[in-house]
Design a binder for these strands. Structure first.
Lengths: 170, 170
DNA sequence: TACCATAATGAGTCGAGACTCATTTTCCAA
DNA sequence: TTGGAAAATGAGTCTCGACTCATTATGGTA
């Protein structure tokens, strides 16, 4: 791939993440192009459809989250990750709006990472043994959705997470 | 209001609820008109903008939920209501997609009803005393969102609700 | 440097869907 | 029954955004 093409691809991805995570996926490709400083045609050369572009940034986003999760661990790693993710969701429109687009591989990667955090928390006795990964993921997604949509303040977020953490606790 | 106008208004609301709760709010007004058996112009005569139509069915929906909640009570009224709402959300796109449209009065009414269920559950000792209404509402909305989006099966739904109920329990 | 394959450009096409309005139809009060 | 106000009709307008492509520019190689 030529150097300019490589550079533009990165710029477009950065711009797309910025635009879509703030304005939602309804934002126009035109706007992404403008922010990236390229012509609209260039965006479509790199990502033939808008969905391709969405899938690409979702993949990057999930990979980053999985990487984040991998650096955590121990008794409260799961709790830290949970809180961090919810905070992000409330500020931006991260995972939430992108739900329609599916990137199974990337989701799987995140699932693995969360599973590991769960295992460690259970080993440390912070989380009940009969809790499994699927419901943890379900809660994670749900609360991110809720936080984004409801515009929670810090206190509400804390109180809501407190209920969930109590439900997970041994 | 003339009799035919009254009749059409009802038909349009019913059709709109059917269409929007199944296809999401992106469905076209055209489709609503077709299902209602009226011309597109008639829809716009009754509801000048699409948002007006969305607000109208959201209001009806919330009022109905509040009515539902009012018939419940006792030790597990809150739990029943919670489960029922999540089941609905998973099947249809009820409250979820309509989040953008705000009908404060209707939301307040539902909040009152949920608050009453919470009070009764606490009186019966089913729910911890330090849990308050806002986080219950937040959890309710979150889980509905998650259920809709994730396409949960029955088991996942049960396991997820189990965590939340455990978190609420005394 | 000269060449050309690769990439960028952006005006233009296309379709979809919200909304309009001149015309026709329907209700209902007198 | 009938006059006319209220309501319904639906083809048409308008806007917006995804996507195209003929043309121009550019990076890299011989």
């Amino acid at each position: 791939m030529r150097a300019d093409a490589q550079r533009n691809r990165e710029r477009i991805l950065d711009a797309a993440e910025e635009v879509f995570t703030h304005r939602g996926t309804a934002a126009s490709t035109e706007e992404v192009a403008r922010l990236a400083g390229v012509a609209i045609g260039t965006v479509f050369r790199h990502f033939p459809t808008k969905d391709d572009l969405l899938a690409a940034i979702l993949k990057r986003l999930l990979a980053r989250l999985a990487g984040d999760a991998a650096t955590l661990g121990g008794a409260d790693g799961l709790h830290v990750f949970f809180r961090r993710l919810v905070e992000q969701a409330a500020a931006k429109r991260t995972v939430v709006d992108l739900a329609g687009v599916s990137v199974p591989a990337a989701v799987g990667q995140l699932g693995e990472a969360v599973g590991e955090l769960l295992r460690q928390a259970q080993a440390a006795g912070t989380v009940r043994d009969d809790v499994r990964r699927p419901e943890v993921m379900a809660l994670l997604v749900s609360v991110c959705q809720g936080a984004l949509q409801g515009g929670w303040d810090v206190e509400l977020q804390e109180r809501t997470l407190a209920v969930i953490f109590a439900g997970l606790a041994a």
